[in-house]
Design a protein around this nucleic acid. Structure first.
Length: 312
DNA sequence: CGTATTTGACCGGCGC
DNA sequence: GCGCCGGTCAAATACG
């Protein structure tokens, strides 16, 4: 009875997330000094990779790109002065854990932001004819959530509020491609995931199944995290940064090409993970919002205010 | 039949 | 304390 819900709650609750962070702080949570000590090879490549997995929201370059792309459009929600962009440093953006995008979709096609979401609620909002839908990332160790609602003023515009990081990019899917030789540049992955690798290489579909698999498997990462002793460098396994692969594309990987209206291999691939049949014109079912050549992304006032109010 | 979605109940924060 | 409201849960239902 309600076993699925209980499992989900147990694995996705704050306790589980905290356990992971306390016992296995991801690389990006290490201080710069710690990080450099652990990763003497650390350089721009590693740094870029680690940083990019920290925050699934728009990067500073994405914002800059968006500015360029939004400006030619007729009705941007708000035009940002280019002079403000240099003040928005990467470190600031990485601390933004909640942000809003407004996505205008003028086509009949669906949209997909590249993640696999599980809808867990829908509420009617006071003074709004449009319901708001609530989604969680389907990866059980991920705390990312999003809310989606149709704009009151602009029926073709969806307001998507993202909250939380996609933790699973920093943990389970730093998996190497076994068909390649290891180069010199290395990054570490944890024993648990190395063990997981030894059980067989995972395809994307297999990874997805693993996330949604049996309760025993679901609990494994959390238990491992709780049992693990502090990091022992000699016990760690190292894998090359550029051999790492992701199970799903980061939003930032999808947003940038989408803003350029260029369908990419990745965006096509990830679109297939959404349940496209759920969409109806009368109710909002935005687990499938598809990138099409006819929409544009603008930064809402909320995110601009949020970024601007951050202390850094 | 397994998985995803729907939807009313429930909960906690907040203002009065 | 009470009611409102946004957010979450979970049983029921729909779907492939």
């Amino acid at each position: 009875m309600a076993e699925k819900g209980s499992q989900w709650t147990r694995r996705c609750g704050n306790d589980a997330v905290e356990d992971i962070f306390v016992n296995e702080p991801p690389l990006f949570f290490l201080s710069q000094e710690q990080h450099h000590r652990l990763m003497p090879y650390e350089d721009s490549i590693t740094n870029k990779f680690v940083t990019s997995t920290l925050y699934s929201g728009p990067r500073i370059q994405d914002i800059a790109n968006a500015l360029v792309l939004v400006e030619p459009l007729s009705h941007p929600v708000r035009e940002i002065s280019k002079s403000t962009v240099p003040r928005l440093e990467r470190s600031t953006l990485n601390k933004v854990d909640k942000y809003t995008l407004k996505v205008k979709n003028n086509s009949n096609g669906m949209c997909d932001d590249g993640y696999k979401w599980r809808k867990y609620g829908q509420k009617s909002i006071k003074n709004s004819p449009n319901p708001r839908s609530y989604y969680k990332c389907t990866n059980p160790i991920c705390n990312a959530k999003k809310q989606v609602e149709r704009s009151i003023d602009e029926p073709n515009t969806y307001i998507i509020t993202y909250e939380g990081f996609h933790f699973h990019y920093t943990y389970p899917f730093f998996l190497p491609d076994k068909t390649h030789q290891w180069p010199n540049k290395k990054t570490k992955i944890h024993k648990y995931y190395a063990q997981e690798m030894n059980n067989g290489s995972q395809t994307q579909e297999e990874s997805k199944e693993a996330q949604l698999g049996e309760p025993a498997n679901q609990n494994q990462p959390v238990h491992k995290a709780q049992e693990n002793t502090p990091v022992n460098l000699e016990d760690e396994l190292f894998f090359p940064v550029d051999q790492c692969r992701r199970q799903q594309g980061l939003l930032e990987d999808v947003v940038a090409p989408a803003m350029k209206n260029i369908p990419t291999k990745d965006s096509v691939l990830t679109a297939s993970w959404s349940s496209l049949s759920s969409y109806t014109s009368s109710s909002l079912s935005p687990s499938s919002l598809c990138w099409s050549p006819n929409f544009d992304i603008v930064l809402s006032d909320e995110i601009l205010e949020l970024i601007g109010s951050r202390k850094f």
